[in-house]
Amino acid sequence: MTFQLLFAAEAGKLYIANAIWYLLCFAILLIAVKHYAWGPVSEMLAKRQQRIVEDLDTAAENRKKAEMLANEREAALKRSRQDAMKVLSDANVTAQRTSETIVSEANNQASTIRQQAKADASQAKADALSSARDEVADISVAIAEKVIAKNLSADDQKALVDQFIKGLSD
């Protein structure tokens, strides 16, 4: 091995042997950088890319799920609103019907009561009239007995009074 410094060598001359050193230098640098910097960094880049893709996928899935849930909720809300509306209208209808039946029943009752009252009144009138007739007959009989002191049979008296009253009402 010869190792000697050749000072004052010619300028402008090419030293081809340097290429060996450059190649060696570059190869070592390549391996070192791959091990310490390029490898970890590019691995992390790939990992991050995969992570981002996964995150985007899950986000899209979640959004779809949320959308579905919202739709479901909205449909349920709509359905319950419809149910409530139906219940309300049903209640309205039944209330109407009940009120109608109550009113008609009351009307019926009122009219029967009125009829009863009318019948009662006419009955009472008839009763009063007949009892008054009897009484008047009796009184007039008594009066007539007293006046004419003549004993007539009650039936005769009555016929007499009837005739009299008939004459009155005509």
């Binding site: 000697q4 410094l5 050749l6 000072f7 030293y15």
Partner: peptide, 10 residues
Amino acid sequence: MEKPIVFKLF
């Protein structure tokens, strides 16, 4: 032109 420093190896 500057003069280079040259050494011989092998």
